[in-house]
């Protein structure tokens, strides 16, 4: 059986129905374990104190903010090339989750930044990149909601996603270039792999796993909703024509 058969809406509905409960359960366990472990059973950082513990929310949400966009790029490409409706609906379903993740990364970053840098916001390249990413998500969602015909909307948003990806990448490097003089270095932007020891790393890994699983479960759930609303749309069209 070809991998693409899962792109058949009926097969997708069947499979996602079976996959969702264990995914939600697993992600719940991972998040509970990771967050409790991280918050209560890790030592305070010698320099940053207990504020460091926000990384268990900040780092996974920031990672997901970028990964969700990449997933949307891939599924949009699949739609443009192979015309699988489920694929583009998954991209549509993922966008609001991506927005939430981006906002979460920005907010947790601001909360963390206040005691550390003495300010909620700085035009640090990384922060700025996330703000720009947020704008791209916003445009993508706005375009979906502005177009009535679902297939037209799917085509246009997919092309916007492709073009947007190129420009998002360009912006990322442009922003680095623009503010490299003020960039405060890894000690403040916290490259997890380099800076933190295993004590923090393992609960963080559990949290990241939890976020990924939660995202997959939510995308399945929202894609199912999109498929149903698409079906409703088709039925109401038919009723009106009959």
């Amino acid at each position: 059986m070809s991998f693409w058969e899962y792109a058949n809406p009926r097969r997708f509905m069947g499979l996602s129905d079976r996959l969702m409960p264990p995914l939600f359960l697993l992600s719940g366990i991972c998040l509970a374990v990771g967050l409790i472990w991280g918050f209560f059973f890790t030592p305070d950082d010698f320099r940053q104190g207990s504020t460091v513990k926000i990384i268990y929310l900040h780092v996974p949400s920031a990672m997901m903010a970028i990964n969700v966009w990449i997933m949307m790029l891939v599924t949009s490409l699949v739609w443009l090339i192979r015309r699988h409706h489920v694929s583009v609906l998954a991209a549509k379903a993922a966008a609001p989750i991506g927005i939430t993740m981006t906002l979460m990364a920005l907010f947790t970053g601001a909360i963390w930044g206040q005691p550390m840098w003495g300010t909620f916001w700085a035009w640090d390249p990384r922060l700025t990149s996330f703000l720009i990413l947020f704008l791209f998500y916003l445009g993508y969602v706005a375009l979906w909601s502005a177009i009535e015909d679902p297939d037209t909307a799917a085509d246009l948003t997919s092309i916007l996603c492709l073009v947007g990806s190129v420009f998002a990448l360009l912006s990322r490097y442009a922003v680095n270039f623009w503010n490299q003089g003020l960039h405060q270095g890894a000690s403040l932007s916290l490259d997890a792999e380099e800076n933190i020891s295993d004590v923090f790393w393992f609960p963080l890994l559990v949290c990241i796993t939890g976020f990924v699983l939660l995202f997959v479960a939510l995308v399945l759930l929202r894609t199912r909703t999109e498929i149903r609303s698409r079906r409703l749309h088709a039925i109401s069209l038919r009723e009106r024509a009959a």
């Binding site: 720009i132 704008l135 791209f136 916003l138 445009g139 706005a142 375009l143 502005a146 916007l160 073009v163 947007g164 420009f167 998002a168 360009l170 912006s171 490097y173 442009a174 922003v175 270039f177 623009w178």
Partner: peptide, 16 residues
């Protein structure tokens, strides 16, 4: 909508 879609695409041009 056009402004919302286009302005983020203008970021690299503006910066450079």
């Amino acid at each position: 909508l056009l402004s919302i879609l286009v302005l983020p695409l203008y970021v690299p041009t503006l910066i450079f």
